[in-house]
């Protein structure tokens, strides 16, 4: 049970003195009497991830404790939220750079095209971010079509200080993401050391009650041995008293 409770949140119900029922705190049966029910996994058709099933019921979202819940939370909440931030950043940069480039003229005198492959949507932007051109002459540096004009290049460079990503500039937005990761990790390890202290204290308390102290058992041993010796002395004195009495009667 101790091992099981490290994996998932377990509740135990003592049915009648002899049989035990174990369920997750969501109520999915794990052990009933002498029968056990395996948890199984199935591939989710939309996300492609594995869902946890008890019999035919999907219990993925109702698992609230243990390693399994931690892994699921990391997979379904923490990482997707970071991914979506990175996607927002990537699509914001790609779209603003493309828009600004389209406002100018390249070295051939043509209106600027896309510098980045245009993202099809926000989701997946970060992983699909790619530069669309290989010829530097296609960067629309010029704002008026003359080769020596650099006004659009300056505008492209200045995108870095403009609030093009959810009301923030790209640098601040990115540093916000990194701060979030660092903060989550540092909160988690602070939480971990707190919990570890708690576990240690509980284990100490458990051990204080149930642990075997050789000193105490030794003392008990001496005590019981003395009591035994004393009792047998009493018995032998009584026996000798009887003996004396019987001898007196006989005489």
């Amino acid at each position: 049970m101790t091992q099981l409770s490290q994996l998932v949140d377990v509740q135990s119900i003592q049915a009648d003195g002899t049989s035990l029922t174990l369920t997750t705190s969501g109520g999915a049966a794990l052990v009933v009497g002498n029968q056990s029910f395996n948890l199984t996994t199935q591939t989710d058709p939309t996300s492609g991830f594995q869902d946890v099933f008890s019999q035919v019921r999907d219990i993925t979202s109702s698992i609230t404790g243990g390693n399994l819940a931690g892994d699921i939370q990391l997979r379904d909440k923490e990482i997707p939220s970071l991914q979506s931030s990175l996607d927002t950043l990537a699509s914001g940069i790609a779209n603003s750079v493309n828009t600004q480039n389209a406002a100018g003229f390249d070295l051939n005198g043509h209106a600027g095209g896309n510098i980045f492959v245009p993202p099809t949507g926000v989701a997946g932007s970060a992983i699909n971010l790619a530069v669309a051109i290989s010829d530097p002459n296609l960067i629309a540096a010029s704002a008026d079509g003359t080769a020596g004009n650099n006004a659009n290049a300056t505008a492209l460079a200045n995108l870095q200080s403009q609030n093009i990503i959810s009301g923030q500039n790209p640098i601040n937005y990115y540093s916000g993401i990194v701060f979030q990761v660092g903060n989550d990790a540092s909160n988690a390890s602070a939480g971990l050391s707190g919990e570890q202290l708690l576990i240690q204290q509980l284990q100490d308390q458990q051990s204080a009650v149930s642990g075997v102290s050789l000193d105490q058992e030794g003392a008990n041993l001496v005590q019981f041995q003395n009591a035994y010796t004393a009792a047998s002395r009493v018995a032998s004195i009584i026996a000798s008293l009887f003996q004396t009495t019987i001898n007196m009667i006989g005489a």
């Binding site: 540093s175 990194v178 660092g182 990790a185 540092s186």
Partner: peptide, 17 residues
């Protein structure tokens, strides 16, 4: 690593930019 000092790392990114 970022968890060593989250606000420090955010300041570092701005500084490097």
């Amino acid at each position: 690593s970022p968890s060593d000092n989250p606000s420090g790392i955010a300041a570092l990114i701005v500084n490097h930019a």
